[in-house]
Design a protein around this nucleic acid. Sequence first.
DNA 1: ACATAAATTTTACGCGCGTAAACTTATTTG
DNA 2: CAAATAAGTTTACGCGCGTAAAATTTATGT
Lengths: 341, 341
Amino acid sequence: MPDAKIKNMEEFSAVSGISRPTVSKYFHDPDSVRASTRARIEEALKTYDYRPNIFAMNQNRKLTNNVGIVVPLLADPFFAEMARSLEQRCIDAGYRPTLFSAHGDPDLEVEVLEALRSLKPAGVLLAPLGRASYRKALEKFCNDVPTLIFDSSLDELGLAFVGSNNVQFTSHISDYLCRTGEPPCFFEMKTPANPNAHRRRQAYIAAMETFGHTPQVISIEGEGWAFEEIGRVGGHEALSRGQFSTNTILCSNDRLAIGLLTACYEQGITVGRGPECKLRIAGQDGHPHSRYTCPPLTTISHDYDVVSMHAAEALFAAIDGHVEPWKSTRIEGKLIMRDSA
Amino acid sequence: MPDAKIKNMEEFSAVSGISRPTVSKYFHDPDSVRASTRARIEEALKTYDYRPNIFAMNQNRKLTNNVGIVVPLLADPFFAEMARSLEQRCIDAGYRPTLFSAHGDPDLEVEVLEALRSLKPAGVLLAPLGRASYRKALEKFCNDVPTLIFDSSLDELGLAFVGSNNVQFTSHISDYLCRTGEPPCFFEMKTPANPNAHRRRQAYIAAMETFGHTPQVISIEGEGWAFEEIGRVGGHEALSRGQFSTNTILCSNDRLAIGLLTACYEQGITVGRGPECKLRIAGQDGHPHSRYTCPPLTTISHDYDVVSMHAAEALFAAIDGHVEPWKSTRIEGKLIMRDSA
DNA sequence: ACATAAATTTTACGCGCGTAAACTTATTTG
DNA sequence: CAAATAAGTTTACGCGCGTAAAATTTATGT
């Protein structure tokens, strides 16, 4: 039971009987001191409540043990899950993670990066919003701070890129849809907030051509991150106009698919694999909610754990000085077959 | 265009022609210096890139301008939205918010609070996990740090409580359901992760008695925060056993309702208000996803904006020294009528 | 046991800024 | 316009800790 409060390291070194520089070393890395002295320090820690002042520590250290985690939109469960996973890995590796969200706003993203800079982080895990106009600001940031880019790639930016293999995602699920029924149309936003959307469209087109089908892309209007609503409204329009040339729709992402499912429901269109169903709908991302749509959504899921592991380890390696040339790691997704397609 | 880099406040005061203590005052509060000197400083700021070292600043200040925001589970869109809103209010008020999630784990919550302590925050906005066993740790924290509790109340803890009026929530929607059809059964978790659940059950029972109906509570098994899955599995069981005595079900929260909707779908049970529908289902919370279920979920929504406003302003007032006795502010919810009930 | 290497102690300085005190200059007020 | 007041300057110290250098103690190997 720690009782007597200790003001600073000086006082603590006095009561522990160890000199302050050695105590300092201990807090920097407990293994850097002799086992016997470590034991004495930890013994004192049990009786006296002391923790080094974090501000004084970071002031003089060239590098802190802070790690920034920046996502474009924390309200999106995909990023919430990635953030959680990365946060845990940082803690396990002895870093102090701090979580930031740009809330979908590129200006806020730049502000966040500015704020992050002043925290002198040892490294940053950044999922960029991906607007080209902000490339300059990101580039500047990456030059100053070891930054690993995840989720959506801005070529050659930062230490490295780790994310999902969007081409494989779309190819794989397109393949599945072609082999199990009519070839899919592709449902996407005309001006997607996420740059991965472009890769997915291209992969869809390529996959269709491989199968000898003519691709059909339906690009709907809508700006911002309210994908479900955009999918619902755009879905209503596309359905009313009869824009889907087959009975199968592959959506650019699950959130769009969820909106489209709602539109179908509202128009009384049954979705699913059964013979009585008019439409098959599939998504992409493995959104936490996709299991609970009606019908449950067939999708292809990110391997959250593997992506976060590669991202975290690549950053930590770089922090430890293991310099490697920029590279891109893309993790394959797993098809999740459910009732919607 | 800031070009020449300035190392510290000393150098900056030199190039700006203002003494360092005055510059220090300026960064503490720009309005605390004469308008003419403020102009000179800001003029220099345009040509020289300088920002005070945040660690050195916080080291000597008794209080930082850090504000901690702690939520039980960031992956829950309700908390994600609250966090976003609170974050913005902190920034607008000149504080530096830092976001933390306990990820549903009481031990992590305590750790987060420990970490937060060392940031010497001016204040903390805390939505507690609400396990009684951790009351002691929270109490200790609240004694040391000005803490405002939101979402779920632990009586008399912290500066004050701001949250939704769960009793009104349940009364109001129960009332609606009774007036528009058969009286509702209540669908909830036997051991809910969120303490508000108890209030809702009690309010349901009270509302039913007011209407002269006998309340029927279905408490399902399940631990943790995977409410949708718990609702789905529990829903299957309750449906199979015929546990619902009326055709109307009020769920303790939207996430449970979403799971129950999935269970209904999987059993081929139509949900909605139409004459062909077998069941009416309503939720509570105004979950971002509730609009997109099939059918869209009738629910009662938190007034996110008002709750976050009251919470933030109460904290800022306390930080500014406006001491007030502990009080509880409960915001009413708005009924959102959709097709499910 | 003795040389050598490793760890610790002593001593001392610096980081960047907050802040207090005494003094000087600028602005406001009657 | 002098006096009163407000704001800025100088000077100086301290915060809590990192860290370097030299001296000293302790551990390790043959």
